[in-house]
C-alpha cells in the first residue's frame, strides 16, 4: 500500500517535471540552448494566471490566460533577445556560453520584475479542487484531487503536442527546422519564425507546469527554481533532444524522488537531483532516448 501511495505521488510530481523537461527539450532541439529562463517564464505566466484568478474568481479561466502569456513571453524572448544574440555573438571567446548567460540574465530580469510588481512574499494561487488526499477504505492516500488535475492536465498537454508534432504541417516544419535548419530554409520553411513558434510552445508547457503545481505550495518569484533543476535533470535522463524521452525522464525522476523522500528522508531531495544528474551523465550521457551525439559535441 505504501509503495502504491509513493508511486502515485511520484507520478504526479513526475508529470510536472515532464512538462518542464518538455519545455527545455523543445528549445534545446531547435536552438541548442538550455533555456534557464524557463523557470522565470513559468513563474511570470503563473503570476498572470494569479491576477486573472483574482479578477474572475476562477482557477479554470486563469489557466488558459497563463498558457497564452507563457507562449507570448517565450516568443518575445526568442524574437527579441535570442535572435539578436545569434546575430552578434557567434564569434569571440564567450560565444559558446553567451546563450547560457543570456538566459540567466532573462531569469534574473523576470524574477526581479515579478518581485517588483507582486513583492517577494508568498502568495496563494488556489485551486477549487481539494489538496487533501482521497479517502479509500478509511485510509487517506497522499494522492489528492489536485494531483489528478495535474496528471490529467499534463497528459492533455502531451497529447496536444503529440498530435501537433505527428500530424500537422506545423509539426513537420518544427521537426525539420530543428534538425536541418539549412535544408529547411531551402525547402521554404521560415526557420526563424518556426523557431519562435517552438519557443512559444515551450513557454506554454512551462506555464501549464507552473499553473498546475503552484496550488500545491505557494507562489513567489523563485518558487519554481527547484522545478527548473528537476526539469533539467529529467531532460538529461531522457536525452535532452527527445520529446518522449523528456516525458519518460520526468516520470522516472518523479517516482525516484518520491521513493527517496519516502524511504530516505525529505532533507536529501535537493542534493538528490544533483547526484542523479551526475550518475546519469557518467553512466549514460546521451540519456535513454537521446540521439547518438553525446554531450561532448553539444
Amino acid at each position: 500500500m505504501l509503495i502504491l501511495d509513493t508511486l502515485l505521488i511520484g507520478l504526479s510530481s513526475g508529470a510536472i517535471y515532464a512538462l518542464m523537461a518538455l519545455a527545455l527539450v523543445l528549445v534545446w532541439r531547435s536552438t541548442r540552448v538550455v533555456n534557464f529562463a524557463q523557470a522565470g517564464q513559468a513563474i511570470l505566466s503563473t503570476y498572470i494566471g494569479y491576477e486573472v484568478m483574482n479578477r474572475t474568481h476562477s482557477y479554470w479561466i486563469s489557466i488558459p490566460f497563463a498558457i497564452i502569456a507563457g507562449g507570448a513571453i517565450a516568443a518575445f524572448i526568442d524574437a527579441v533577445i535570442m535572435r539578436a544574440l545569434a546575430k552578434r555573438s557567434h564569434k569571440g571567446s564567450v560565444a559558446e556560453i553567451a546563450p547560457v548567460i543570456a538566459t540567466l540574465g532573462m531569469l534574473g530580469l523576470i524574477r526581479s520584475l515579478t518581485g517588483a510588481i507582486w513583492g517577494n512574499e508568498y502568495l496563494q494561487y488556489t485551486s477549487p479542487v481539494s489538496g487533501k488526499g482521497y479517502l479509500i477504505g478509511g485510509h487517506t492516500i497522499p494522492f489528492s484531487p489536485q494531483n489528478t488535475v495535474i496528471v490529467v492536465g499534463a497528459l492533455l498537454v502531451m497529447g496536444v503536442f503529440a498530435v501537433i508534432f505527428k500530424f500537422t504541417n506545423l509539426g513537420l516544419a518544427l521537426r525539420a527546422a530543428s534538425f536541418q535548419p539549412e535544408i529547411s530554409r531551402l525547402a521554404g520553411i521560415r526557420v526563424d519564425r518556426i523557431r519562435t513558434i517552438g519557443w512559444a510552445f515551450a513557454g506554454s508547457a512551462g506555464a501549464v507546469a507552473g499553473a498546475l503545481v503552484t496550488p500545491t505550495s505557494y507562489l513567489s518569484p523563485n518558487s519554481l527554481d527547484l522545478l527548473l533543476v528537476s526539469g533539467f535533470v529529467a531532460a538529461v535522463i531522457g536525452g535532452l533532444d527527445s520529446l518522449i524521452g523528456a516525458v519518460l525522464g520526468g516520470l522516472i525522476l518523479g517516482v525516484g524522488f518520491a521513493f527517496i523522500l519516502q524511504y530516505i528522508g525529505t532533507s536529501v531531495t535537493f542534493s538528490a537531483a544533483f547526484i542523479i544528474l551526475i550518475v546519469v551523465l557518467f553512466v549514460r550521457p546521451r540519456g535513454i532516448l537521446g540521439s547518438k551525439v553525446g554531450r561532448r559535441d553539444a
Binding site: 534557464f36 556560453i97 533539467f232 535533470v233 538528490a272 544533483f274 551523465l281 550521457p285 554531450r295 553539444a298
Partner: peptide, 28 residues
C-alpha cells in the same frame, strides 16, 4: 573531474543543480 567531461549547457546545468542542492545539506 566531472566538469572536464561535460561541455557548455551540461556543465551549466550540473553546476546549477549543485548550487540549488548543496546549501540545503546544512539542514541535514
Amino acid at each position: 573531474m566531472a566538469a572536464a567531461r561535460l561541455s557548455g549547457p551540461y556543465l551549466a546545468g550540473t553546476t546549477l543543480a549543485l548550487a540549488v542542492g548543496l546549501p540545503s545539506l546544512a539542514n541535514q
